[in-house]
């Protein structure tokens, strides 16, 4: 009896939780929806102008979003997916689950934006972040890092976009010798976390000397916490760039609302929230410019990036190469 009433209860709960008429469901990564992330402010700003209910659903880290969408297929509740990056857009387009966008904007990106399916919402450079009080002599290249005895926290490239970014960063620096470079780094890796939040949280708890994050991460400590002890390293080889994107799901039951949200992402309201909540460079610089403090951030001498097609082709072999080296 218990079992039967339980199953009935679960079924009822399921029915009750299905989206009501005017709800826009946005799948995103964990840190976007956290209390200190952009989620709450974005929700408030969009709901003020859309007369709808904006619901963020956090699904682990960026790369997990894609697997989740494949798992749910056209049956997904998602109207928008926000949090993939250009390293994943090729694979995302292959699923056929995304619809083209119609947004035009004056993008302030280091590269020209030509993608017709996804729009950028912010960008930044991957970098290793350290505590100036603990690490006095930060390594300024991958070789120097491998030669040091500093401990590192990184993310799994299969589940996390920073993890995948690091993989492609190493690939772009070392090419065919990437496996050897990983062999040199792996003995310093404390652990490989599923997502960015886990790794950064562990870093703040003192579990390692360096964490893979962004050149913009120190801005959070500087602006939000008035703490200038954290710094990011610009590598001599250059730092790999990440452009985070949003896309509209083709099977959305709220296509007009989804289009409205896509336009909102490129608007001043959304873009001015990004720098001090997601701690990245906005895709369209707000009228007031970047917040004070951003000028102190490390500037990579060289921006490294693969096109989304190149990254799409490199991803699988690079992940396999990394797995094979790291599992030893």
């Amino acid at each position: 009896m218990k079992a039967i009433s339980f199953v009935a209860g679960a079924a009822l709960a399921t029915v009750a939780s299905t989206a009501s008429a005017d709800t826009l469901t946005v799948y995103t990564y964990d840190s976007f929806t956290s209390d200190w992330g952009p989620g709450p402010a974005v929700e408030k700003a969009f709901e003020a102008e859309c007369d709808c209910d904006l619901e963020f659903v956090a699904m682990g880290d960026g790369a997990e979003l894609l697997a989740r969408l494949k798992l749910e297929g056209a049956r997904t509740d998602a109207d928008i997916v926000l949090g993939l990056d250009t390293n994943l857009t090729a694979a995302a387009k292959d699923t056929g689950l995304f619809a083209p966008h119609s947004v035009t904007a004056d993008w302030s990106l280091p590269i020209e934006w030509t993608d017709t399916t996804f729009i950028p919402y912010d960008w930044g450079y991957f970098a290793f972040v350290y505590d100036k009080e603990k690490v006095s002599n930060p390594p300024e290249s991958f070789d120097a890092l491998a030669a040091s005895d500093l401990s590192i926290l990184i993310q799994d490239p299969r589940s996390s976009t920073p993890g995948l970014g690091l993989l492609l960063w190493v690939k772009s620096v070392y090419g065919d010798k990437a496996a050897e470079a990983w062999a040199g780094l792996n003995d310093q890796v404390v652990t490989v976390t599923k997502g960015w939040s886990e790794a950064y949280g562990m870093f703040l708890e003192g579990e390692a000397d360096l964490v893979l994050s962004y050149t913009t991460s120190p801005a959070y400590h500087l602006i939000a916490e008035d703490d200038d002890s954290k710094a990011a390293i610009a590598f001599e080889e250059g730092n790999y760039m990440q452009i985070e994107v949003a896309g509209k799901v083709a099977s959305s039951d709220q296509p007009e609302l989804a289009d409205k949200f896509m336009a909102f992402v490129a608007s001043e309201a959304f873009q001015s929230i990004i720098p001090t909540t997601n701690w990245m460079y906005p895709a369209v610089t707000p009228k007031a410019g970047l917040p004070a403090g951003f000028e102190t951030l490390a500037q990579p001498g060289k921006a490294l990036v693969f096109s989304s097609e190149e990254a799409g082709a490199l991803r699988k072999p690079a992940v396999e190469e990394w797995l094979a080296t790291s599992a030893k």
Binding site: L71, V189, S326, A327
Partner: peptide
């Protein structure tokens, strides 16, 4: 488990499913 170095088969099943589908 610390990434690929400490992955059990059961965890690998989960990852094949969740990460790569």
């Amino acid at each position: 488990g610390g990434g690929p170095r400490a992955t059990t088969v059961e965890l690998a099943i989960y990852e094949a499913f969740r990460f790569d589908f």
